[in-house]
Nucleic acid binder design. Structure first.
Lengths: 244, 244
DNA sequence: TGCGGTAACTATACGGCGTGAAGTAAAGAT
DNA sequence: ATCTTTACTTCACGCCGTATAGTTACCGCA
């Protein structure tokens, strides 16, 4: 059973440490999946791992630190999923990419409702997000990805947004810089469009996942499809034929 | 100091009971306003009232029951606010009513962020909403109010929604019944429109209030105004001139 | 006027929570 | 072989919701 499993560059200690950290997060996500973000508890995690709750303090300074790490991981996974769905279609297919992104978003949220709550809901009792949100990086990626979608649609859509009076100073400096570097010539109105798209998608999905739509419609999927089709149309693109 | 303050129909006991119930809720809302929904605690309420935590069990069977009552109250207050803002303008001014409703929604959310979290966020640790949401009635009112807005815009907007394939069975039976009674001739596509409008507004406002927009835009108000203007335009109505 | 019922409230207790302080045993470094 | 660091446990504190039992004060009725 004695064998060399680790690389030579990391010590055995560091390896064990990494593995234990990963296990803590894995167990925490399991608890969340079965009981919601509120059931992420140091004591429950420790119980599951055959440890004492205080042992976790060797890996995370506080429960909120653990939650922050989890939020970052889950949010990053969401961003990966969305970008993968978008990049499965050619850049030229602007409408298809928006459609793919939007459905990937809803599908992910329905498949991981507790993860969605963790990211977008009020997470847990007294959790306070550390300065400017827990996962600004992933949030930024999502926003930049949406701006990419808007940029793809801009040739057709720009004519409908000439009366917008947005300015680069209306947006986060870092975000604006990235967008201007990646899409030269794209006006600030396109970023506003991206954020509005985010609002549309997030609004319907969060209402659905958090249960506020259940009492109104029996067919949230149809509502969402309709929303996306109208969104694509409003950009001057051709929506795909409706499917049941 | 001895005087008759209550009405003859309610006993002194019942009066005190009502007052105490109201005080519990009032203190709970104060705690929420200062520390978020998570700091609504039976013990904290009792402390504030100079009582024992267990005394509250005489008024609410459980902490979740209290939370449910609070959600209902706050949601009802929101619905009142929205309807009042809408009804301040004549029915003929469809665009103005949508505008008023939308801004009342955001203004309320920004003025009562903790109330917004209570209603729309994941409320508190282990809170489980009792069968179909805590405040189905207020939720219904909001939805019906939005449908009223859609109905007001329908003469101008209907032409853009002829290709929608919504059916009355796509919506909650009770909601559909009310809508058909109040707005005869209004097609189910108008209810879908109302829900989509809700999604738009809720999406941007919840992103802003829950802090997910802060890292992207420095001017969420402008973004929201733009969203509403485009929404009104997309209905074939004339948006009001933009103001700073 | 007095008595019985009941409503309102307290006292005590249990288990669970995050977290701090102190101690222990094993692993690594020298 | 000794010293240091790491991983972990034990104990403790003050929070939490809530169950059970006991106490007090008021109300209606004789």
């Amino acid at each position: 059973m004695i064998q060399d499993v680790g690389s030579a560059t990391t010590s055995r200690r560091a390896r064990l440490r990494t593995e234990t950290t990963a296990e803590i997060k894995r167990v925490a996500l399991e608890l969340m999946a079965s009981g919601g973000p509120g059931s992420i508890t140091l004591r429950a995690i420790a119980r599951e791992m055959g440890m004492t709750a205080n042992a976790i303090y060797g890996y995370f300074a506080t429960r909120d630190d653990l939650l922050t790490a989890l939020i970052k991981d889950v949010y990053t996974e969401l961003a990966d999923t969305l970008e993968a769905a978008r990049d499965a279609l050619p850049e030229a297919d602007a409408a298809g990419r928006i459609l793919a992104w939007a459905h990937a978003f809803r599908d992910w949220a329905l498949a991981h409702p507790q993860g969605f709550r963790l990211i977008y809901g009020d997470p847990v009792p007294g959790y306070q997000a550390p300065e400017g949100g827990a996962a600004p990086e992933a949030e930024h990626r999502v926003c930049a990805g949406l701006t990419g979608l808007a940029a793809g649609a801009w040739p057709e859509a720009s004519g409908r947004y000439t009366d917008d009076s947005f300015d680069w100073t209306d947006f986060d400096e870092k975000l604006a810089g990235e967008v201007r570097a990646e899409f030269p010539g794209l006006p600030p109105a396109a970023v506003a469009l991206a954020l509005r798209i985010w609002g549309h998608l997030h609004g319907l999905v969060s209402l659905e996942v958090l249960g506020h739509l259940r009492a109104q419609t029996t067919n949230p999927a149809k509502l969402y499809r309709n929303e996306i089709a109208r969104l694509i149309s409003s950009l001057g693109l051709t929506p795909p034929p409706a499917t049941a």
